[in-house]
Design a protein around this nucleic acid. Sequence first.
DNA 1: ATTATAATTGGAATAGTTCTTGATATTGAT
DNA 2: ATCAATATCAAGAACTATTCCAATTATAAT
Lengths: 150, 150
Amino acid sequence: MRTYFPVAMVSKNPDHSVEIEISEEISGLRMTRQRREVYRILQQQRNHPTANDVFMRVKDRLPNISLATVYNCLEALVQHGIIRQVNFDRESSRYCPNLSEHGHFHDATTGVIHDVSFKPGINLADVLDLPPGAIIDGVEVTLRGKLVTS
Amino acid sequence: MRTYFPVAMVSKNPDHSVEIEISEEISGLRMTRQRREVYRILQQQRNHPTANDVFMRVKDRLPNISLATVYNCLEALVQHGIIRQVNFDRESSRYCPNLSEHGHFHDATTGVIHDVSFKPGINLADVLDLPPGAIIDGVEVTLRGKLVTS
DNA sequence: ATTATAATTGGAATAGTTCTTGATATTGAT
DNA sequence: ATCAATATCAAGAACTATTCCAATTATAAT
Ligand SMILES: [Mn+2]
Ligand SMILES: [Mn+2]
Ligand SMILES: [Zn+2]
Ligand SMILES: [Zn+2]
C-alpha cells in the first residue's frame, strides 16, 4: 500500500505552455533547483526519457548542470519514490513519473514505450505461482511487440 | 506458440554424476565444442549464472576458452531460442535454460533467483490493459522481495 | 557570521559487454 | 585428399552507461 503525495500543481497559461509548481520538499527530499528541473522535465516529457535525454533538455534552464548531477538527481528521486526507473534489457535506464502500478510495452517499430496498467481487480501476485513464504517488494512487467495500426 | 526440440538427453551414472548428450545441431545452430560446454553448464547449474560464472566453470573442460567466446556462445544460444537472457535492473545479464514461460523472483536476502510460473490457465495478456492493436512478442516478469522461512 | 552538512561539478575510473583482427576449424565442392 | 569458402575462436582493445572522487558551492543550523 503506497501513499501518494500531491507533489506538483499543473496549470495552463494563455499561450498553452504548462507551468508546474513544485513544492520545496517532496517525500523528505529537498527540492534543489537541479532536482526541481529534472523532475519538471519528467512531468512534462512523459515518454520515459534516458538520463541523457533529461540532461540535454534540462540545459535550457540550467546551462551549467552536469550529467553526473542529472544522475544524482534521478537517483535521489527514485530513492524517495518520486519517480520510477525503468529498464529494458541492457539499454540505458529510463525514468517514469507515473507512480501508479503499471508495466511497460515497448513498440519495436516506433521505439515508443507505452504505460500498461493492470485490468481492474487484478493483483499480479494472484496469477503467479510464487515460492511459499515470498514477500513481494516490487514487480516489473515488460512487454515487447508491435502496434499494428490497421 | 513455441515449438520445443528434444535438445538434450540426461542420464545418471553409477557415481551420481550427470551425463548430458547434446546433439550436433540445435534449432539450426551448429553445436561446437564451446557452445556445447556452455550449454551443458546452463543445464546443470540452473541458478541463472552470469557470463562470468559460466566462464569460470567452463574452464574445467576447455581451459583455453575466452570470455569473449562465452559471450558469443551465449548470444548464439539466445538468438536461436535455446536459452533465455535474464536481466535484473542494471546487473550483469544472467542466463536461463528454462524455455517454458516463466518469470523471476529475486530473493534480496540470499540473492537466489527463483523461477516463477503462471498459475494454470492464466494468460498474462488477459490481465493487462494493452494498447489497442498491440501484438506481444515477449513478456518479462520480474519480482523482488524476501523469502521468509518461518 | 560561523560552522557544519549537503549538493553540485567536471573529470577520472569502473565494469559489463562488444568489436576487431588474425589464427583455427569446419564445410562443401572438386 | 585438396582446396577454397565460410564459420568460429582467442586475445585484447574499444566502447558506453554509470559511478566515483576531490574540489567547490550552496544550504541549514547555531
Ligand atoms: Mn532516448
Ligand atoms: Mn553470480
Ligand atoms: Zn511508465
Ligand atoms: Zn529462469
